[in-house]
Design a protein around this nucleic acid. Structure first.
Length: 259
DNA sequence: ATGACTGCACTTTGCAGA
Protein backbone atom coordinates (compact mmCIF):
# COMPACT_ATOMS: atom_id res chain seq x y z
CA UNK A 1 0.00 0.00 0.00
CA UNK A 2 1.29 3.43 -0.93
CA UNK A 3 0.48 6.36 1.34
CA UNK A 4 1.72 9.92 1.18
CA UNK A 5 1.52 13.34 2.78
CA UNK A 6 1.55 16.63 0.87
CA UNK A 7 1.04 20.25 1.81
CA UNK A 8 -0.60 21.39 -1.43
CA UNK A 9 -0.80 25.14 -0.61
CA UNK A 10 -4.39 25.53 -1.88
CA UNK A 11 -6.18 22.50 -3.24
CA UNK A 12 -8.00 24.73 -5.72
CA UNK A 13 -4.79 26.08 -7.23
CA UNK A 14 -3.21 22.62 -7.13
CA UNK A 15 -6.12 20.54 -8.44
CA UNK A 16 -4.72 19.68 -11.91
CA UNK A 17 -1.40 18.70 -10.42
CA UNK A 18 -3.05 16.84 -7.55
CA UNK A 19 -5.19 14.69 -9.82
CA UNK A 20 -2.30 13.95 -12.17
CA UNK A 21 0.00 13.12 -9.29
CA UNK A 22 -2.48 10.75 -7.64
CA UNK A 23 -2.93 8.84 -10.87
CA UNK A 24 0.73 8.84 -11.82
CA UNK A 25 2.10 7.88 -8.42
CA UNK A 26 -0.38 5.14 -7.64
CA UNK A 27 -1.02 6.54 -4.17
CA UNK A 28 -3.72 4.74 -2.17
CA UNK A 29 -4.08 7.23 0.68
CA UNK A 30 -3.02 10.89 0.68
CA UNK A 31 -2.87 13.15 3.73
CA UNK A 32 -3.38 16.74 2.54
CA UNK A 33 -2.60 20.01 4.33
CA UNK A 34 -3.34 23.65 3.56
CA UNK A 35 -6.40 23.02 1.46
CA UNK A 36 -7.18 26.76 1.80
CA UNK A 37 -10.81 26.15 0.92
CA UNK A 38 -14.20 25.83 2.53
CA UNK A 39 -15.61 22.35 2.97
CA UNK A 40 -17.99 23.06 0.10
CA UNK A 41 -15.17 24.06 -2.23
CA UNK A 42 -13.27 20.81 -1.68
CA UNK A 43 -13.06 18.88 -5.01
CA UNK A 44 -14.66 15.69 -3.71
CA UNK A 45 -16.40 14.97 -7.04
CA UNK A 46 -13.19 15.15 -9.07
CA UNK A 47 -11.46 12.85 -6.57
CA UNK A 48 -14.36 10.42 -6.57
CA UNK A 49 -14.07 10.12 -10.35
CA UNK A 50 -10.53 8.86 -9.76
CA UNK A 51 -11.80 6.37 -7.21
CA UNK A 52 -10.98 8.24 -4.00
CA UNK A 53 -13.22 8.93 -1.03
CA UNK A 54 -12.56 12.16 0.84
CA UNK A 55 -12.76 13.36 4.43
CA UNK A 56 -12.27 17.11 4.84
CA UNK A 57 -11.85 19.52 7.73
CA UNK A 58 -11.62 23.05 6.33
CA UNK A 59 -13.25 26.42 6.82
CA UNK A 60 -11.86 28.95 4.38
CA UNK A 61 -8.77 30.74 3.19
CA UNK A 62 -6.30 29.43 5.78
CA UNK A 63 -5.31 25.98 7.02
CA UNK A 64 -7.56 23.03 6.13
CA UNK A 65 -6.69 19.32 6.11
CA UNK A 66 -8.04 16.25 4.36
CA UNK A 67 -7.64 12.53 3.83
CA UNK A 68 -8.33 10.92 0.48
CA UNK A 69 -8.34 7.16 0.14
CA UNK A 70 -9.12 4.44 -2.37
CA UNK A 71 -8.72 1.65 0.20
CA UNK A 72 -11.48 2.67 2.60
CA UNK A 73 -12.19 5.66 4.79
CA UNK A 74 -14.07 5.26 8.06
CA UNK A 75 -14.01 6.34 11.68
CA UNK A 76 -13.32 9.94 10.71
CA UNK A 77 -12.48 12.35 13.55
CA UNK A 78 -12.20 16.04 12.66
CA UNK A 79 -10.14 18.44 14.71
CA UNK A 80 -7.60 17.90 17.46
CA UNK A 81 -9.27 16.64 20.65
CA UNK A 82 -8.35 18.99 23.45
CA UNK A 83 -6.63 21.29 20.99
CA UNK A 84 -6.08 24.96 21.88
CA UNK A 85 -7.84 27.92 20.32
CA UNK A 86 -6.12 30.73 18.48
CA UNK A 87 -7.89 34.07 18.73
CA UNK A 88 -10.97 32.26 19.99
CA UNK A 89 -11.13 29.71 17.19
CA UNK A 90 -10.24 26.02 16.96
CA UNK A 91 -8.59 26.01 13.55
CA UNK A 92 -8.97 23.07 11.12
CA UNK A 93 -5.53 21.51 11.45
CA UNK A 94 -6.15 17.81 12.10
CA UNK A 95 -8.25 14.97 10.75
CA UNK A 96 -7.93 11.23 11.29
CA UNK A 97 -9.49 8.08 9.90
CA UNK A 98 -9.11 4.36 9.38
CA UNK A 99 -7.80 3.76 5.86
CA UNK A 100 -7.76 0.05 5.16
CA UNK A 101 -5.43 -1.64 7.63
CA UNK A 102 -3.96 1.55 9.10
CA UNK A 103 -5.17 4.53 11.07
CA UNK A 104 -3.77 7.86 9.91
CA UNK A 105 -3.78 11.47 10.98
CA UNK A 106 -3.24 14.38 8.60
CA UNK A 107 -1.95 17.36 10.58
CA UNK A 108 -0.98 20.94 9.83
CA UNK A 109 0.93 22.15 12.88
CA UNK A 110 0.77 25.93 13.50
CA UNK A 111 3.67 27.84 12.00
CA UNK A 112 4.63 29.85 15.08
CA UNK A 113 5.65 32.90 13.05
CA UNK A 114 8.21 34.27 15.55
CA UNK A 115 9.45 32.97 18.87
CA UNK A 116 8.05 36.01 20.70
CA UNK A 117 4.68 35.79 18.93
CA UNK A 118 1.53 34.38 20.51
CA UNK A 119 1.41 31.98 17.58
CA UNK A 120 4.58 30.27 18.83
CA UNK A 121 3.11 29.57 22.27
CA UNK A 122 -0.01 28.35 20.49
CA UNK A 123 2.15 26.02 18.39
CA UNK A 124 3.67 24.46 21.51
CA UNK A 125 0.26 24.04 23.16
CA UNK A 126 -1.06 22.46 19.97
CA UNK A 127 1.80 19.95 19.93
CA UNK A 128 1.19 19.07 23.59
CA UNK A 129 -2.46 18.37 22.79
CA UNK A 130 -1.39 16.27 19.79
CA UNK A 131 0.79 14.09 22.01
CA UNK A 132 -2.07 13.51 24.42
CA UNK A 133 -4.52 12.81 21.62
CA UNK A 134 -2.38 10.19 19.85
CA UNK A 135 -1.02 8.38 22.90
CA UNK A 136 -3.52 5.54 22.87
CA UNK A 137 -3.23 4.80 19.14
CA UNK A 138 0.56 5.14 19.32
CA UNK A 139 0.70 2.35 21.89
CA UNK A 140 -1.71 0.07 20.03
CA UNK A 141 -0.94 -2.98 17.90
CA UNK A 142 -2.56 -1.53 14.84
CA UNK A 143 -0.30 0.31 12.39
CA UNK A 144 -0.75 3.99 13.11
CA UNK A 145 0.93 7.18 11.94
CA UNK A 146 0.68 10.94 12.16
CA UNK A 147 1.64 12.51 8.84
CA UNK A 148 1.77 16.13 7.83
CA UNK A 149 3.40 19.51 7.88
CA UNK A 150 4.89 19.70 11.37
CA UNK A 151 6.59 23.05 10.77
CA UNK A 152 9.60 21.75 12.72
CA UNK A 153 12.98 20.68 11.42
CA UNK A 154 13.90 17.78 13.73
CA UNK A 155 17.68 18.36 13.55
CA UNK A 156 20.11 21.00 12.34
CA UNK A 157 20.76 18.89 9.25
CA UNK A 158 17.11 19.25 8.31
CA UNK A 159 17.61 22.84 7.15
CA UNK A 160 19.87 23.98 4.36
CA UNK A 161 21.93 26.25 6.65
CA UNK A 162 21.32 26.24 10.38
CA UNK A 163 23.12 29.59 10.72
CA UNK A 164 20.38 31.18 8.61
CA UNK A 165 17.80 30.05 11.18
CA UNK A 166 19.34 31.50 14.32
CA UNK A 167 16.56 32.85 16.51
CA UNK A 168 13.87 31.53 14.17
CA UNK A 169 10.99 29.22 14.74
CA UNK A 170 11.08 25.66 13.34
CA UNK A 171 14.46 24.86 14.90
CA UNK A 172 14.09 25.78 18.57
CA UNK A 173 14.79 23.40 21.44
CA UNK A 174 11.19 23.65 22.64
CA UNK A 175 9.79 22.64 19.24
CA UNK A 176 12.23 19.76 18.98
CA UNK A 177 11.32 18.69 22.52
CA UNK A 178 7.72 18.44 21.36
CA UNK A 179 8.84 15.97 18.69
CA UNK A 180 10.84 14.08 21.30
CA UNK A 181 7.67 13.82 23.36
CA UNK A 182 5.90 12.22 20.42
CA UNK A 183 8.74 9.74 20.07
CA UNK A 184 8.55 8.95 23.79
CA UNK A 185 4.87 8.16 23.25
CA UNK A 186 5.93 5.35 20.91
CA UNK A 187 6.17 7.06 17.53
CA UNK A 188 9.30 7.14 15.39
CA UNK A 189 10.40 9.44 12.60
CA UNK A 190 10.13 7.56 9.29
CA UNK A 191 12.84 9.42 7.39
CA UNK A 192 12.43 9.35 3.61
CA UNK A 193 15.28 9.01 1.16
CA UNK A 194 16.08 11.89 -1.16
CA UNK A 195 15.76 11.36 -4.90
CA UNK A 196 18.57 13.86 -5.46
CA UNK A 197 21.30 15.44 -3.31
CA UNK A 198 22.12 14.08 0.10
CA UNK A 199 19.24 15.19 2.29
CA UNK A 200 15.48 14.61 2.08
CA UNK A 201 14.20 18.18 2.21
CA UNK A 202 10.44 18.48 1.73
CA UNK A 203 9.97 22.26 1.48
CA UNK A 204 11.70 24.97 -0.52
CA UNK A 205 10.67 28.63 -0.34
CA UNK A 206 9.25 30.03 -3.55
CA UNK A 207 11.68 32.96 -3.38
CA UNK A 208 15.35 33.47 -4.22
CA UNK A 209 15.80 30.34 -6.33
CA UNK A 210 15.56 28.23 -3.21
CA UNK A 211 14.63 25.08 -5.07
CA UNK A 212 17.30 25.18 -7.78
CA UNK A 213 19.84 26.00 -5.07
CA UNK A 214 18.43 23.23 -2.86
CA UNK A 215 17.92 25.59 0.06
CA UNK A 216 15.28 23.40 1.64
CA UNK A 217 13.90 22.17 4.93
CA UNK A 218 12.62 18.80 6.13
CA UNK A 219 9.44 19.76 7.94
CA UNK A 220 6.88 17.36 6.45
CA UNK A 221 7.17 14.32 8.67
CA UNK A 222 5.81 10.81 9.14
CA UNK A 223 5.61 9.67 12.76
CA UNK A 224 4.59 6.03 12.98
CA UNK A 225 4.15 3.56 15.82
CA UNK A 226 6.13 0.32 15.99
CA UNK A 227 3.85 -1.81 13.82
CA UNK A 228 3.73 0.98 11.22
CA UNK A 229 7.50 1.47 11.17
CA UNK A 230 8.03 -2.29 10.80
CA UNK A 231 5.73 -2.32 7.77
CA UNK A 232 7.64 0.44 5.94
CA UNK A 233 9.35 -0.93 2.84
CA UNK A 234 10.43 2.37 1.28
CA UNK A 235 9.97 6.09 1.68
CA UNK A 236 11.08 9.02 -0.45
CA UNK A 237 10.46 12.68 -1.20
CA UNK A 238 8.99 13.18 -4.66
CA UNK A 239 10.94 16.32 -5.48
CA UNK A 240 9.89 16.07 -9.13
CA UNK A 241 6.53 17.46 -8.01
CA UNK A 242 8.24 20.64 -6.75
CA UNK A 243 9.41 21.48 -10.28
CA UNK A 244 7.85 23.73 -12.84
CA UNK A 245 4.97 26.15 -13.05
CA UNK A 246 2.12 25.70 -10.63
CA UNK A 247 4.03 23.68 -8.02
CA UNK A 248 3.33 23.74 -4.30
CA UNK A 249 6.26 24.90 -2.18
CA UNK A 250 6.15 21.46 -0.50
CA UNK A 251 6.88 18.11 -2.16
CA UNK A 252 4.94 14.92 -1.36
CA UNK A 253 6.50 12.42 1.05
CA UNK A 254 5.68 8.88 -0.10
CA UNK A 255 5.67 5.79 2.13
CA UNK A 256 5.31 2.24 0.86
CA UNK A 257 3.92 -0.23 3.38
CA UNK A 258 3.80 -4.00 3.38
CA UNK A 259 0.45 -4.43 5.09
C1' DA B 1 17.45 21.97 -16.74
C1' DT B 2 15.13 23.16 -11.23
C1' DG B 3 15.13 29.67 -12.54
C1' DA B 4 14.65 35.00 -9.20
C1' DC B 5 7.22 33.94 -4.66
C1' DT B 6 2.31 32.38 -4.27
C1' DG B 7 -2.62 32.28 -2.99
C1' DC B 8 -6.49 34.44 -1.40
C1' DA B 9 -9.63 37.93 0.54
C1' DC B 10 -10.32 42.18 4.24
C1' DT B 11 -9.25 41.99 -3.90
C1' DT B 12 -5.07 46.38 -6.98
C1' DT B 13 -2.93 45.99 -1.08
C1' DG B 14 -2.37 43.21 2.86
C1' DC B 15 -1.58 39.06 5.14
C1' DA B 16 0.36 34.59 5.82
C1' DG B 17 3.53 31.26 4.72
C1' DA B 18 8.55 29.22 7.08
Amino acid sequence: MRIATWNVNSITARLPRLLAWLEGSGTDVLCIQETKCTAGQFPADELRELGYESAVHADGRWNGVALVSRVGLSGVVTGLPGGPEYEGVQEPRAISADCGPVRLWSVYVPNGREVAHDHYAYKLRWLQALKTAVAQDAAAERPFAVLGDFNIAPADEDVWDIAAFEGSTHVTAAERSALEALRSAGLSDVVPRPLKYDHPFTYWDYRQLSFPKNRGMRIDLVYGNGPFAEAVKDSYVDREERKGKGASDHAPVVVDLDV
